[in-house]
């Protein structure tokens, strides 16, 4: 009786053979019907991308340009299709963003172009594509990755948006600071039913959840940094815009609360080792608005200090905060019209837009820095649960 001895890894060449008629089954099982949760938790990050690339390598090895083309088209169209269907699910979008990037990195790492081979092992160099130059397809994949990134940002924004005003402005964690409520102000009724239930802690927990999902999916660290920067921009912009529209948010004690909240966000960045991703800098307008609520606003010296401090705020924003500023106790007073005029005169020569509100829809341009993998393709096993028994390891 023949003994079914498993082949040794060194005997494999890191390719997966498939029949042309199985291509649809491949993208169906691997992309359209895959449940990201199970895959992300149990298997190596980027496994679908590696499997697709190993199939592509086999088509390249056969020198079958039609097979290469149709596999790439089916892959890209399937990813677009799943994102159309589940585009509002952060996990799905994050999963396909990281896999699309990994697929793109593989196309570079194994392209045979020296610039992308610097970190390859000799064995990895043997696995470079041998017949086709897929540079144009890399461009298409990069365009796809940009689309998925924008979808991820929208998805994240939809989840975060309802928490921001409540967690950053309304909810008070510093006990006894505000003391007396500003006189003559009604408590603003909430437009979102459960708005009042969100706290800064809800925001921090949500940020951690986004972060842990992306890490689990093996998202490139450089890409995570860009997502976090965008998250912080949205938090800062939405908070500042609401502050600029609400008198009850423009008091000394709110300034204190905002500064505390910002320090907690910074602490979160430090905890995740993300201090250098540019996220903190996006909060600068909000930080300055909070400081503006707290500094003295009386003398010419105060005016000078404010003008040099608030360089991330527009004149319209500075003047608005000063106009809205509302004392909450007898030790504070309203800002005089004369003082506001002094500020306006001092800032007259600033070249800037008359913009009051920040544009919360801005998305920073994304880049996908090349991130080669040390994983040996020949060592990759295909778990039975993926239902890809029709692929043969070569």
């Amino acid at each position: 009786r023949p003994v079914n001895l498993p082949r040794k890894e060194k005997d494999f060449q890191g390719m997966l053979e498939y029949k042309k008629e199985d291509e649809l089954k491949l993208v169906k099982n691997l992309i359209l019907e895959l449940k990201p949760r199970g895959v992300a938790v149990n298997f190596i990050p980027g496994l679908p991308a590696y499997i697709l690339f190993m199939c592509l390598r086999h088509a390249d090895y056969l020198n079958d340009d039609q097979k290469v083309r149709t596999l790439l088209t089916s892959t890209i169209n399937s990813i677009k299709k799943i994102l159309k269907k589940r585009g509002d699910d952060f996990e799905t979008v994050s999963f396909w963003l990281s896999n699309t990037c990994r697929f793109l990195h593989c196309l570079k790492q194994y392209s045979g172009e020296e610039a992308f081979m610097k970190h390859n092992t000799p064995r990895q160099n043997e696995h470079c594509l041998s017949n086709f130059d897929l540079a144009e397809y890399r461009q298409v994949l990069s365009d796809l990755a940009i689309q998925i990134y924008q979808q991820l940002i929208k998805c994240m924004e939809n989840i975060l948006q309802p928490m921001i005003v409540s967690g950053m402005l309304e909810h008070e964690t510093i006990q006894g600071v505000s003391g007396v409520k500003p006189t003559g102000l009604r408590k603003r009724t909430s437009s979102i039913a459960d708005e009042g239930t969100y706290t800064l802690d809800s925001i921090l927990r949500q940020l951690s959840s986004f972060h842990s999902i992306m890490c689990q999916h093996g998202t490139d660290p450089e890409l995570i940094k860009q997502v976090v920067k965008q998250q912080f921009y949205i938090i800062g912009a939405v908070t500042l815009n609401n502050l600029l529209l609400r008198k009850d948010m423009c008091s000394w004690s709110k300034g204190m609360q905002i500064r505390y909240n910002v320090s907690q966000l910074e602490e979160w960045l430090r905890d995740k080792n993300l201090m250098n991703c540019g996220a903190k800098e996006t909060l600068e307008p909000l930080i300055q608005a909070a400081q503006l609520l707290q500094v003295k606003k009386k003398t010419d010296e105060d005016a000078e200090a404010i003008c040099s401090m608030c360089n991330a705020l527009t004149t319209a924003q500075i003047v608005k905060v000063l106009n809205l500023y509302t004392p909450v106790n007898e030790f504070e007073e309203r800002v005089s019209i004369m003082f506001i005029r002094t500020i306006q005169t001092r800032l007259r020569d600033r070249k800037e837009s008359p913009q009051l509100l920040m544009d919360t829809k801005i998305i920073y341009p994304v880049t996908f820095p090349f991130n080669p993998s040390s994983l040996a393709l020949e060592s990759i096993h295909i778990p039975g649960s993926l239902n890809l028994g029709f692929l043969t390891r070569v």
Binding site: T73, G112, C128, S130, E136, Y137, D143
Partner: peptide
């Protein structure tokens, strides 16, 4: 080591053009 033979550049359609080649057409039609 990269092979000495030059690779053949595969011309790619754009992302939008690719969508036209809907591989799922048959499956989706009633």
């Amino acid at each position: 080591r990269p092979p000495s033979r030059p690779r053949v550049l595969l011309k790619a359609p754009t992302l939008a053009e690719m969508e036209e080649m809907n591989i799922f057409e048959e499956e989706e039609s009633p």
